Simulated assay, not measured.
Amino acid sequence: MPRSSPSTATPDRWTRAALWVLCAFTAFTIAGYASFGLHPQLLARVPQVAGLYGIAFRFFAVGHVLIAGAVLALFLVRHAGARWLAAFAALYGISLTSELLGTSLGIPFGEYAYTPLLGIKWFGLVPLVIPLSWFFMALPSYALALRALPGPDAAGRRVLLASLLLASWDLALDPAMSHATKYWVWGEAGPYYGMPLLNLLGWYVTGLLLMGALAALRAESWIRDLPHRWLGAFYLANLALPLGMSAAAGLWGAVAATVAALAAAYGVARLLAGRVRGARLVEVRA
């Protein structure tokens, strides 16, 4: 049976339905935040909702990560079998280590701490769901970079591009989760909605480690066969939550920065792809 290419592989109806569930949950969460989260006086008008919303506020962030993780796991099991498990273990371990260093030593993100809103924590520092969120955004970032730079001679460029796609997510995530809400707090206020600029460097460096691990594991051997359009939609569905919350809270600078970063990533992809093609032409002529 011939291997599928990213342009011909298609998701099955179960993974399409699961993605729609994630999208619906995302929309419901944003709507709840935009109404009751930003206008708590509405709760006074509907007192029976007040207690429910207090529980929901804690549930929705954790629930979104768990649902997104389950949706991606279903997709990977149906399209890659068990081949993705080594990558999951590696990326979970790398991101957990990076987060433990950040929450204990302030390296590489700056000083910060997670509040109790994200549930049970590793060693009382890092919520269990946080490394899962790194994985489910790192994988589609790598897949999109692979689609843009598919050649075996583009591995290094692919890692750089995928890390940029992953870091773009944080430009909306941090304002939404540490400024508009308080899922984590910074030890020292920074210029970007309270976030220190060191955090962006930390995100990119951590992204390099994650993408480097995927490259070292030769994950492209099975990622190449996945329906990349589904993974692109999955990336956007997860980006929509912090982006929608930032927009609802009026953090338009965060929205603009995220869109600009994605546009820059697209430009970088075109530039790197052009350089790869140019290098191949030189080799052919030689």
Rank of each mutant, 00 (worst) to 15 (best):
A154I: 09
A154Q: 11
G156E: 06
R157A: 09
R157L: 11
R157W: 11
R158C: 02
R158T: 00
R158F: 03
V159L: 09
L161N: 02
A162F: 04
A162K: 02
S163H: 04
L165K: 06
L166N: 03
L166A: 10
A167E: 11
A167V: 04
S168Y: 00
W169Q: 10
W169A: 05
W169M: 10
D170L: 01
D170G: 07
L173V: 03
L173K: 00
D174Y: 00
D174S: 02
P175D: 03
P175G: 01
A176F: 08
M177Y: 02
S178M: 06
H179R: 05
H179G: 00
A180D: 06
A180L: 08
T181V: 13
K182R: 15
K182C: 00
Y183E: 12
V185C: 02
W186I: 04
E188N: 13
A189I: 07
P191I: 02
Y192C: 13
Y193F: 13
G194T: 05
G194H: 03
M195T: 14
P196N: 12
L198F: 12
L198S: 14
L198T: 15
L201R: 01
L201G: 14
G202P: 10
W203V: 02
Y204S: 06
V205D: 11
V205R: 08
T206N: 15
T206L: 12
L208E: 05
L208T: 05
L208F: 04
L208K: 04
L209I: 07
L210T: 07
M211Y: 15
M211C: 14
G212Y: 09
A213H: 05
A213G: 04
A213K: 07
L214T: 10
L217Y: 08
A219I: 03
A219V: 02
A219G: 12
A219P: 01
E220M: 09
E220S: 12
S221Y: 00
S221N: 09
W222I: 11
W222T: 11
I223Q: 06
I223K: 12
I223H: 14
R224P: 00
L226V: 14
P227K: 07
H228Y: 09
H228R: 13
H228S: 12
R229D: 15
W230N: 12
G232D: 10
G232A: 15
A233F: 14
A233K: 08
A233R: 14
Y235N: 08
Y235T: 09
L236C: 08
L236P: 07
L236R: 04
N238F: 03
N238Q: 10
L239Q: 02
L239W: 02
L239G: 00
L239Y: 01
A240W: 05
A240G: 07
P242I: 00
L243N: 05
L243I: 06
L243K: 02
G244K: 06
S246P: 03
S246D: 15
S246A: 15
A247N: 06
A248V: 11
A248L: 10
A248H: 13
G250I: 08
G250P: 12
G250C: 12
G253T: 09
A254M: 07
A254D: 07
V255F: 07
V255I: 08
A256G: 11
T258D: 10
V259P: 09
V259A: 14
A260L: 15
A260F: 13
A261L: 06
A263F: 08
A263H: 08
